[in-house]
Simulated assay, not measured.
Amino acid sequence: MDISHIEHVGIAVPDLKAAIAFYENTLGLKCFAIEEVEDQKVRTAFFKVGQTKIELLEGTSPDSAISKFIEKNGGRGGIQHIAFAIEDGVANALAEVSEKGCALIDKAPRKGAEGLNIAFLHPKSTCGTLIELCEDPAKK
């Protein structure tokens, strides 16, 4: 697996509008995209810091993974996942980590925000951190 960089850090937030205001007004960052990913029941906002992005995530349904994360976290947000950019394909990376005994949430890549091919590794196999693997199909 060829990891080139941290693609983004995913931060769950209970109120996307308030979180965007904090990142823009307090930290001086600029939100460059807001997107809803319907099949994941999430609305996202992206900020760029160097080569890495910050992805703020707000659940759009009480049964979304983000809403459940916030509920488990006492109604507060927090770092929900870290995403790595994969240069040699998410499918190849999934096969490689699966062979090494890693539990997968996604058995095959799927579409995520910004049109990326994504897949998640289960925190039970990753020392407690939800890990997302990302590939930009436009860079192939």
Results as ranks from 00 to 15, higher is better:
I11Q: 06
D136T: 02
A65T: 04
K107G: 10
R76I: 01
A95Q: 10
E58K: 13
K41H: 12
N92Y: 14
E7Q: 05
E114K: 12
S64G: 09
A45H: 15
I20M: 06
I6C: 00
E96K: 15
L29R: 08
K30A: 13
R110E: 06
A12F: 09
I70V: 13
I34L: 08
F32S: 00
D63C: 03
E24P: 07
R110F: 09
M1W: 06
L16S: 09
E58N: 07
N25L: 08
S4D: 10
A33Y: 08
G10Y: 11
L57G: 02
N25I: 03
I86V: 15
A93R: 00
A85I: 01
F32K: 01
M1D: 04
E135S: 01
A85D: 05
A95E: 14
G75R: 07
K107T: 13
K139H: 10
A103D: 11
M1S: 08
A138V: 12
A108N: 12
E38H: 14
L27C: 13
I54K: 11
G89T: 02
E55R: 09
K140G: 06
A21C: 07
E24L: 10
A93Q: 04
A119K: 10
G115I: 07
I118P: 03
T26A: 09
E36R: 07
D2C: 00
E7F: 00
K68T: 07
A95F: 05
V9E: 00
I6D: 01
A18L: 04
A138Y: 05
S4F: 07
D88Q: 04
A85V: 00
A21M: 11
G10S: 11
H81I: 04
L27A: 07
N117P: 04
A95M: 09
I3S: 01
E24R: 12
K30R: 14
A119R: 06
A12G: 05
D136R: 14
I11V: 15
L29C: 12
A119E: 09
G112E: 04
D136M: 04
I6K: 02
C127G: 05
P109L: 09
F46P: 00
S125R: 02
T129S: 12
G112I: 12
H81V: 05
E36V: 07
I66W: 06
E58V: 10
L116F: 14
R76W: 09
K48N: 08
K30E: 10
